[in-house]
């Protein structure tokens, strides 16, 4: 592999310092790295263990019920078809493993990303500093994250999760920031005029009003996690990505398609279900079935009331 190199004018090397930094972190911060690895391993392993421990029939029924409750009858049927396909394609364990990775990585991304988004929304300086980092994180080809992740954490689920977190976090940060900044000035003033402390303003006014936007970010994070999980199978993250990877390696179209279809179905399931949590019409007071029932009845009797009071 010989490639002609152009003569350098200023002798600037970009790659070497990055390599040095990675090496330095590896030698000097191994304790921290091991700690992070242990926490993530514990988290993801247990989540996967739980999903695989549940009897597939029970898990399947739960998924269908969830689809029926959050979205509706049509989506319930879609859930049933998906469950049947996962089972018939012999991909149940891989699917559960992928869902565990996606949910684990998304949870970490949200836990880290939302506070960063809040900090950004409160300070223009922080916003200016963080924004280019987010741009970098989002535009860097995702394969690149696999290299340092594998160097720091070896192969397996842990580096897979970490690479996924890095790739999937920006929307959670951005949309939290955007959501809070979009809260109307009058609502902020109302909060302050009634005596909110800065903390109360955040928890009682800004966060609830930004919630639909933040949930869009959460949804985007989950979708990006899913696309990254396939790539992360290259460093041994396992799951449906592995099936796709095997299909490529063996040029087995059928196998590749099965793995790909599995990913698509998981994507649609997670997308639809998580989106309902961001829809203000479906969340009511903290979401949940009781709230929806109350709202349904409230709405039913509302037109008469409007006539009598006006």
């Amino acid at each position: 592999m010989t490639q002609d190199k152009n003569p350098q004018l200023l002798d600037i090397d970009v790659g070497a310092p990055v390599e040095n930094a990675v090496e330095w972190i590896q030698t000097n911060m191994s304790g921290l790295l091991d700690g992070i690895a242990a926490v993530i391993k514990f988290f993801v392993d247990n989540l996967e263990g739980l999903l695989l421990w549940i009897d597939p029939y029970v898990a399947g029924v739960l998924l269908i019920v969830l689809g029926l409750w959050r979205v509706g009858i049509g989506f319930g049927i879609f859930c049933a078809v998906s469950v049947a396909l996962f089972w018939e394609m012999q991909l149940w364990p891989e699917t559960m493993s992928t869902i565990a990775l996606v949910l684990g990585a998304s949870a970490v991304a949200i836990v880290l990303g939302v506070p960063v988004g809040i900090a950004m929304s409160r300070s223009d300086l922080i916003e200016r500093l963080v924004r280019p980092i987010l741009d970098l994180m989002q535009t860097m080809p995702p394969f690149v994250y696999l290299i340092p992740a594998a160097i720091f954490f070896g192969l397996g689920k842990v580096p897979g999760t970490i690479a996924t977190v890095v790739f999937a976090m920006p929307p959670a940060v951005r949309l939290t920031n955007l959501g809070i900044r979009q809260v109307s000035e009058e609502n902020i003033e109302a909060g302050l005029a009634f005596g909110c402390t800065p903390r109360q303003l955040l928890t009682k006014v800004q966060m609830p009003l930004a919630m639909p936007t933040i949930m869009q970010g959460v949804n985007q994070t989950i979708m990006l996690s899913l696309s990254m999980v396939v790539i992360a199978s290259m460093i041994g993250a396992g799951g449906l990505g592995n099936v796709v990877l095997t299909g490529i390696q063996r040029l087995n179209v059928g196998l590749g398609f099965e793995g790909g279809l599995g990913v698509v179905l998981v994507a649609i399931l997670l997308d639809r279900i998580t989106q309902t949590f961001g829809d203000p019409n479906k969340t009511g007071s903290g979401g949940g079935l009781p709230g929806r029932l109350r709202r349904a009845f409230g709405r039913g009797s509302n037109p008469e009331r409007e006539q009598t009071t006006n």
């Binding site: 009058e186 003033e189 302050l192 005029a193 009634f194 006014v205 609830p208 009003l209 203000p280 007071s285």
Partner: peptide, 19 residues
């Protein structure tokens, strides 16, 4: 003072939609 002595009403209502 804001909590106990004075309150405010706004032009565009400024209600909390989630409550």
């Amino acid at each position: 003072l804001r909590r106990t002595k004075m309150s405010m009403v706004f032009q565009s209502f400024a209600l909390m939609p989630h409550q």
